[in-house]
Design a protein around this nucleic acid. Structure first.
Lengths: 222, 222
DNA sequence: ACCTGAACACCGTTCAAGT
DNA sequence: ACCTGAACACCGTTCAAGT
């Protein structure tokens, strides 16, 4: 039942999915669907679950950095498989056991790498925020148009007031999406996690202020 | 005109804004709005522009890392000022000159730090993906509920199959949102950018494969 | 010209009536 | 019990008629 809804979304986008549309697609009365799902939100939850559950097994070999990359790329592949769902998933947290396998593996890897539970949870959030954010901010299907719009917008700017943007017009358009841009950001995040870990291993702990979430040298503007 | 729409969204959320609703709010006929905007999408563009334009001036002092943090926090403050708009902004690229001031400053800072244009564009994308992703994935208003749901979900899991998640149940709930979690991720990203820069300064260039977007040791699974 | 009510083609959901 | 058509309270937008 949810699979039919997923098919509609994959084919025509999430806006095309209506209860009436889906019902006629299935050859039943509209209200019949309410026998299976209490509301449309319920139905969408089921669709997301359906889509999330079909990820492959994860090879747990190699250094922690390689394993983290593997898990993030698996999440990304999952998101790209059903592009129309990325935005829906932003507001529907991952809660089902099958989907939490990826979270579990990530937490295990982070733990083995040397992060304590508190930091591992935050590192996990960073990684997932990035994959989900990138998938919705830079959807694969919209990249070409985003590039055109970016180029047009930077071309219109007065070079005197916007020297950096006009000079980097082409590079900015390129960076509107695509696998290479995604990979660059991911490696930087992994670099960042590695740096914290090295700092810890070398005996130097984080300064107390930052450990509490106050980055050094930061003046609060409120 | 757009300001009235923004007020409705701020007050009752983006779903409450309809052409009919806004028209009656303004005491005019529904179709009068179509004299100002060609469609609802047009109206929403104007609303986003309205909201984006009200950011303060940026102090450009300090090390590049501090400046980048400042700019990212300014974008975040902007997003938090109109929480209902975060999701809308995901699909509406920043194109208006005023909004591009922040982009310009970011590119300038990255350039002065030592990134070439190509890399600066990708670093910019990473930073913006993170703020926007965090704002939509972990909205301030939804954090409490997300924490409850997270706790409930991890509590339901069999500890034998999910050792890391059940052990870190509390930490994971804490990491569902909030300023400290945001800051942690931001500092990691800045660490990552710093690491690339240091690698470059020390004369060691990125290995050719990674420079082209192929991270080292990665086996493509497709 | 400018504004707008009626109408059209849709929604999600409630409710009561069908089998 | 299970299914569902009609109805309700909404949408965005077109079109033609009002001033």
């Amino acid at each position: 039942v949810a699979r039919a809804a997923l098919a509609v979304i994959d084919r025509e986008g999430p806006d095309a999915l209506s209860m009436r549309r889906l019902a006629s697609e299935l050859g039943v009365g509209t209200m019949t669907l309410y026998g299976y799902f209490r509301s449309k939100a319920d139905l969408l939850d089921a669709v997301v679950d359906e889509a999330v559950s079909d990820h492959g097994p994860l090879a747990r070999t190699g250094a922690w950095r390689d394993q983290l990359r593997e898990v993030v790329l698996e999440v990304r592949r999952n998101l790209l498989r059903h592009p129309g769902l990325a935005r829906l998933r932003l507001t529907r947290p991952i809660l089902r056991p099958e989907a939490l396998r990826l979270t579990e593996v990530t937490m295990e890897v982070l733990g083995e790498a040397g992060f304590d539970r508190r930091e591992a949870a935050k590192a996990l959030r960073l990684l997932f925020t990035y994959v989900f954010g990138f998938a919705t901010l830079s959807p694969e299907e919209g990249t070409d148009e985003a590039r055109r719009e970016s180029r047009a917008a930077t071309a219109r700017l007065p070079a005197a007031d916007y020297p950096a943007l006009t000079a980097a017009s082409e590079e900015l358009a390129d960076a509107m999406g695509g696998e290479e841009v995604f990979r660059y950001g991911l490696e930087r995040i992994l670099d960042g996690l590695e740096a914290t870990l090295e700092r810890r291993h070398s005996g130097r702990k984080l300064p107390e202020r930052e450990a509490r979430g106050h980055p050094p040298h930061h003046r609060d503007h409120r």
